[in-house]
Amino acid sequence: MNFQSVGEALIRPGQLLADRSTLAAVARWTQAVSEADGVCVAHLAPGVDPCELAAELSARGLRASPNHVFRGQPLFFGGPASRPFPVEPIAYRPARNRSAATVAVLDTGVVKHPWWSGTDWYSRVGPEDADAGEGQQAGHGTFVAGMLARLAPGVSLRVRRVLDGDGIGDEASVIRALHRMREDPPDVINLSFGGHTFDDRPPPLLNDAIAALSDTVTVACAGNTASDRPFWPAALPAVVGVAALEATGRQRAAYSGYGTWVDACARGDWLESSYLDLGEFGGFATWSGTSFAAALVSGTIAAGAAAEPAKEVVRRLLDAEDARHFPDLGVVVPVSL
């Protein structure tokens, strides 16, 4: 795991994300540049601090940031959000009809599972987007995919692996995955991961990549931080940030992030879904975390998007006059599985 801690933020050492117009300004600090799918990664000379350089460039009106590290969000050790637990098989008959709605799942990938055996979308999942089944968060993407499949039967999932088996990924990989969706945007994107930035400001290139998908609803988890510190990408203005409620739905789950930047909340504790068929697990698990509260909201939007644009669905969901609200948690999205 190649990353370093800067305060409570994590970054890739010696890497700066920049757009093309910024590259000339960082040339004298740069050893090499890699460019792919709309993002440039400048590999800096030894001793150059990417956070200090990003702050200097931002003050000059240029778009740059360190390559922040993101993590999937059951990672809250000592609470129910820390790990999955095995459960008995869950009865579910997948719909064979293909919904008009498409949900992109940027996560750890997925594994083969009876719930989507024979579906068109799973037949398009290549080896690069399959879950390797190893690591502390292996099965995270499979769990999210199962929740979406149950909430929006027949939905077409577009799986992109941006996290490894330990739930670790970075900003550059996420931006690249988002750029590749521009030609054929999904209705909804689920991002059940995130992190802090070194300066608590929005990461500019990630913000640009999400904002460019203007007809897509992007949903992200508020993080298992138990704090109101902005958690990205959930805190971006173009993103529906989702916090977690405890099992009764009456109050915030103790681990959940919260704040004025949170838009919605849903149950996050002891949810059941598809999982790996490995060891004590027979393809099913119960798990807790803001990751899965976000998936509940994404699935609710996807279900509605079968009949109308996802943007309209989310507008009604967040602006409903009769909806319950919690301070610093937003609109309560009542969902049951």
Rank of each mutant, 00 (worst) to 15 (best):
V188H: 06
R150C: 07
S65P: 00
D131Q: 04
Q136C: 04
R176Q: 15
L106C: 15
F85Y: 07
A27W: 10
A266Y: 04
P334Q: 12
K311T: 15
P202W: 00
R28H: 04
G135H: 13
C221M: 09
P202M: 05
A293F: 00
V33C: 00
A285V: 09
H43N: 11
K311D: 14
R176M: 09
V335W: 08
A95Y: 00
G109P: 15
A243R: 00
R324K: 15
D170E: 03
S214E: 14
M181K: 07
G7P: 02
A234E: 01
N97C: 03
N2K: 04
R71T: 13
R12C: 08
I210P: 11
R180K: 10
V314I: 14
Y122A: 07
V313Y: 08
V69E: 04
P309E: 09
S227T: 15
M1F: 11
F143A: 05
G38Y: 03
A320C: 12
A81P: 09
F326M: 11
G223V: 01
G282L: 01
A234P: 05
V262N: 00
Y92D: 13
A172Q: 01
L151C: 07
V6W: 10
G79L: 08
A95R: 02
S298Y: 13
P80I: 05
R71G: 01
I189L: 08
G146S: 01
V87K: 06
A244W: 09
V87E: 04
I189H: 06
V159D: 06
A152I: 02
P80Q: 12
C51V: 14
A303Q: 12
A9V: 08
S21W: 09
A212E: 09
R158W: 13
L271W: 14
G118C: 06
E128Q: 13
H43G: 02
F326P: 13
G330P: 10
R150P: 10
R161P: 11
R267M: 07
G79D: 11
G259P: 09
D19V: 09
R63E: 13
G118I: 06
A243W: 01
R20A: 15
S82D: 14
E134G: 01
A220L: 10
T30E: 02
G282T: 04
P233Q: 11
S117Q: 13
D187A: 11
A302N: 00
L276W: 08
P46S: 03
D107W: 03
L163H: 05
L53P: 02
